[in-house]
Lab assay of single mutants.
Amino acid sequence: KYLVLALYDYQEKSPREVTMKKGDILTLLNSTNKDWWKVEVNGRQGFVPAAYVKYL
Results as ranks from 00 to 15, higher is better:
Lys1Ala: 13
Lys1Trp: 11
Lys1Gly: 12
Lys1Pro: 13
Lys1Asn: 13
Lys1Thr: 13
Lys1Arg: 13
Tyr2Asp: 13
Tyr2Cys: 12
Tyr2Asn: 13
Tyr2Met: 12
Tyr2Lys: 13
Tyr2Thr: 14
Tyr2Pro: 14
Tyr2Val: 15
Leu3Gly: 04
Leu3Val: 09
Leu3Met: 12
Leu3Pro: 05
Leu3Ile: 10
Leu3Tyr: 15
Leu3Trp: 11
Leu3Ser: 09
Val4Lys: 01
Val4Met: 08
Val4Asp: 00
Val4Arg: 02
Val4Leu: 15
Val4Ser: 04
Val4Cys: 10
Val4Ala: 10
Leu5Arg: 08
Leu5Asp: 01
Leu5Gly: 04
Leu5Tyr: 12
Leu5Asn: 03
Leu5Met: 14
Leu5Cys: 09
Ala6Asp: 00
Ala6Glu: 01
Ala6Gly: 04
Ala6Arg: 02
Ala6Cys: 09
Ala6Leu: 03
Ala6Pro: 01
Ala6Ile: 02
Leu7Val: 09
Leu7Glu: 04
Leu7Arg: 06
Leu7Ala: 06
Leu7Ile: 11
Leu7Thr: 06
Tyr8Gln: 14
Tyr8Lys: 14
Tyr8Met: 12
Tyr8Pro: 01
Asp9Asn: 08
Asp9Ala: 07
Asp9Trp: 03
Asp9Glu: 05
Asp9Gln: 03
Asp9Val: 02
Tyr10Trp: 11
Tyr10Glu: 01
Tyr10Ile: 01
Tyr10Gly: 01
Tyr10Ser: 01
Gln11Val: 14
Gln11Asp: 13
Gln11Met: 13
Gln11Ala: 12
Gln11Tyr: 15
Gln11Trp: 11
Gln11Gly: 07
Gln11Arg: 10
Gln11Asn: 14
Gln11His: 13
Glu12His: 09
Glu12Trp: 05
Glu12Asn: 07
Glu12Asp: 05
Glu12Cys: 09
Glu12Met: 12
Lys13Phe: 05
Lys13Met: 13
Lys13Ser: 13
Lys13Gln: 14
Lys13Val: 09
Ser14Lys: 08
Ser14Asn: 13
Ser14Cys: 07
Ser14Asp: 13
Ser14Gly: 13
Ser14Glu: 10
Pro15Gly: 10
Pro15Leu: 10
Pro15Thr: 09
Pro15His: 11
Pro15Lys: 09
Pro15Glu: 13
Arg16Cys: 11
Arg16Lys: 14
Arg16Trp: 15
Arg16Ile: 14
Arg16Glu: 15
Arg16Met: 13
Glu17Asn: 05
Glu17Thr: 09
Glu17Arg: 04
Glu17Met: 05
Val18Asp: 00
Val18Arg: 01
Val18Leu: 15
Val18Thr: 07
Val18Ala: 06
Val18Met: 11
Thr19Ile: 03
Thr19His: 05
Thr19Gln: 05
Thr19Ser: 15
Thr19Pro: 07
Thr19Ala: 07
Thr19Asp: 05
Thr19Val: 03
Thr19Glu: 04
Met20Tyr: 02
Met20Asp: 00
Met20Ile: 15
Met20Asn: 01
Met20His: 01
Met20Thr: 04
Met20Trp: 02
Lys21Phe: 11
Lys21Asn: 10
Lys21Tyr: 11
Lys21Gly: 05
Lys21Glu: 07
Lys21Trp: 09
Lys21His: 11
Lys21Pro: 00
Lys21Met: 11
Lys21Thr: 10
Lys22Ile: 06
Lys22Thr: 08
Lys22Asp: 02
Lys22Glu: 07
Lys22Val: 08
Lys22Trp: 03
Gly23Asn: 07
Gly23Arg: 02
Gly23Trp: 05
Gly23Thr: 02
Gly23Ser: 04
Gly23Lys: 02
Asp24Phe: 04
Asp24Cys: 05
Asp24Val: 04
Asp24Tyr: 04
Asp24Glu: 12
Asp24Gln: 12
Ile25Asp: 01
Ile25Glu: 04
Ile25Thr: 07
Ile25Ser: 03
Ile25Leu: 10
Ile25Gln: 06
Ile25Val: 13
Ile25Tyr: 07
Ile25His: 06
Ile25Trp: 05
Leu26His: 03
Leu26Ala: 10
Leu26Gln: 01
Leu26Thr: 01
Leu26Arg: 00
Leu26Cys: 10
Leu26Gly: 09
Thr27Met: 14
Thr27Pro: 12
Thr27Trp: 12
Thr27Ile: 15
Thr27Lys: 13
Leu28Pro: 01
Leu28His: 02
Leu28Cys: 08
Leu28Gly: 01
Leu28Asn: 00
Leu29Ser: 03
Leu29Met: 08
Leu29Asn: 02
Leu29Arg: 04
Leu29Asp: 01
Leu29Tyr: 05
Leu29Ala: 04
Asn30Tyr: 09
Asn30Glu: 14
Asn30Gln: 14
Asn30Cys: 10
Asn30Ala: 10
Asn30Ser: 13
Asn30Ile: 08
Asn30Arg: 06
Ser31Gln: 10
Ser31Gly: 11
Ser31Asp: 15
Ser31Asn: 13
Ser31Pro: 08
Ser31Thr: 10
Ser31Arg: 11
Ser31Trp: 14
Thr32Asn: 14
Thr32Gly: 12
Thr32Glu: 14
Thr32Pro: 05
Asn33Ala: 09
Asn33Lys: 06
Asn33Thr: 07
Asn33Tyr: 09
Asn33Gly: 10
Asn33His: 13
Asn33Pro: 05
Lys34His: 12
Lys34Trp: 07
Lys34Tyr: 08
Lys34Met: 10
Lys34Phe: 08
Lys34Thr: 10
Lys34Gly: 10
Asp35Phe: 12
Asp35Lys: 15
Asp35Ser: 12
Asp35Gly: 10
Asp35Trp: 13
Asp35Gln: 12
Asp35Val: 15
Asp35Glu: 14
Asp35Cys: 11
Trp36Met: 07
Trp36Lys: 03
Trp36Gln: 03
Trp36Glu: 04
Trp36Asp: 01
Trp36Asn: 02
Trp37Glu: 01
Trp37Thr: 05
Trp37Ala: 05
Trp37Cys: 06
Trp37Ser: 04
Trp37Asp: 00
Trp37Tyr: 11
Trp37Phe: 10
Trp37His: 03
Trp37Pro: 03
Trp37Met: 05
Lys38Met: 15
Lys38Ser: 08
Lys38Leu: 15
Val39Tyr: 00
Val39Ile: 08
Val39Arg: 00
Val39Leu: 04
Val39Cys: 06
Val39Gln: 00
Glu40Ile: 07
Glu40Tyr: 07
Glu40Gly: 06
Glu40Arg: 08
Glu40Thr: 07
Glu40Lys: 07
Val41Lys: 14
Val41Phe: 14
Val41Ala: 13
Val41Asp: 05
Val41Leu: 15
Asn42Thr: 07
Asn42Tyr: 09
Asn42Trp: 06
Asn42Ile: 04
Asn42Asp: 14
Asn42Gln: 09
Asn42His: 12
Gly43Val: 03
Gly43Leu: 05
Gly43Cys: 08
Gly43Pro: 01
Gly43Tyr: 05
Gly43Ile: 02
Arg44Glu: 06
Arg44Val: 10
Gln45Asp: 07
Gln45Phe: 08
Gln45Lys: 12
Gln45Tyr: 09
Gln45Arg: 12
Gln45Ala: 12
Gln45His: 09
Gly46Arg: 01
Gly46Ala: 03
Gly46Asn: 01
Gly46Met: 04
Gly46Pro: 00
Gly46Ile: 03
Gly46Cys: 02
Phe47Arg: 03
Phe47Ile: 07
Phe47Thr: 03
Phe47Gly: 01
Val48Tyr: 00
Val48Gln: 00
Val48Gly: 00
Val48Thr: 02
Val48Glu: 00
Val48Phe: 00
Val48Asn: 00
Pro49Gln: 02
Pro49Ala: 02
Pro49Tyr: 02
Pro49His: 02
Pro49Arg: 03
Pro49Leu: 04
Ala50Gln: 06
Ala50Ser: 14
Ala50Val: 06
Ala50His: 03
Ala50Met: 05
Ala50Ile: 04
Ala50Gly: 05
Ala51Cys: 10
Ala51Asn: 13
Ala51Ile: 13
Ala51Ser: 14
Ala51Arg: 14
Ala51His: 15
Tyr52Asp: 03
Tyr52Gly: 07
Tyr52Thr: 08
Tyr52Cys: 09
Val53Trp: 01
Val53Arg: 00
Lys54Pro: 01
Lys54Val: 15
Lys54Cys: 10
Lys54Asn: 09
Tyr55Cys: 11
Tyr55His: 13
Tyr55Asp: 10
Tyr55Gln: 15
Leu56Pro: 06
Leu56Tyr: 14
Leu56Lys: 06
Leu56Cys: 10
Leu56His: 12
Leu56Met: 14
Leu56Asp: 07
